[in-house]
Design a protein around this nucleic acid. Structure first.
Lengths: 151, 151
DNA sequence: CTAAAGTGTATCCACCTTAGTTACACTAAC
DNA sequence: GTTAGTGTAACTAAGGTGGATACACTTTAG
């Protein structure tokens, strides 16, 4: 149960939606159906989808025949969008207990670390922004073909 | 108690060592003294120092008057070295439960995600490699002066 | 109008990780 | 041989996580 699996969950859901919504007269995309692909509980899916909805990445319709859809084409949803849609959780956390402010190092180090961490996080974000949900879907389906061919 | 505060702890320790070891006829750098700056328990410090020692970033002497020292100048210890010295913990975890392999998306997505995550992590590492412990020490002490001056 | 099929959310549980702590064997200098 | 350190095992308390159940709310189908 690794800490930050939420990113994987969110990307999986969006990729699944992109795959499932390609046709028109399809079954409705419910949290139950998504849960089957992800192999988890529908509530877990809804919790995640709620965050993606707040970020404007997906849309929901309520009531009977209600369900989910991408708010815009998969080509226009980058993994950076997904990352930012999730509740902020710093890559590097600060000290569990605040350092001793009487110490020359302890006094200023959190400020310095904050700057370093911000730069590193920005580099990571730039990398994430280069990939879209459409890319993930394409590569995932391609991997499927390769594996099938290898058998 | 944020997840990955180990990086902050390790950098703090190395920075403290760099600061403390500048003179020659100083007091010995014990885990107890470091713990006072970090404001935690000496065992926590020793656990971390043990990993830094395994990575060749610090040296230890045992017995009476034993203690710690940087294994090489602070200018030659990058934050990437520190990051890699810590037990590997991926930035992004995979799904808590394996996806449904029967699903076209579920089958290949972990492979795709793995590639994306690796690229992003490499970008982060490149950023970390640009800063050294000596840089952190300099900026931290500078912050101290600025704050003092502002009072 | 009512039943059905969805979402939204609160609550609980089991599990895991973590920092912190105590205790103690081991090591080397004085 | 005493003293002052490290190395490490074991335990505790706290917090976060995914998962599960339950139920109120919403909308469509009939």
């Amino acid at each position: 149960m690794s800490a930050n699996s939420r990113m994987s969950l969110a990307v999986h859901i969006l990729t699944w939606l992109a795959y499932d919504r390609r046709g028109t007269d399809k079954e409705v995309a419910t949290s139950q159906r998504i849960a089957t692909s992800v192999n988890t509980n529908p509530v877990v899916i809804r919790r995640c989808l709620g965050q993606l909805k707040d970020a404007g990445l997906v849309e929901v319709t309520h009531g009977r025949n209600g369900g989910w859809n991408l708010a815009r084409p998969a080509e226009k949803i980058s993994l950076l969008n997904v990352y930012q849609a999730l509740p902020e959780e710093p890559i590097f956390g600060m000290h569990a207990s605040d350092p001793n402010a009487e110490c020359y190092v302890g006094f200023g180090i959190q400020h310095t670390l904050g700057q370093v961490y911000q730069e590193a996080t920005e580099a990571l974000c730039r990398s994430l922004s280069a990939t879209t949900v459409a890319d993930v879907l394409r590569d995932t389906l391609a991997f499927h073909s390769v594996s099938a061919g290898a058998r």
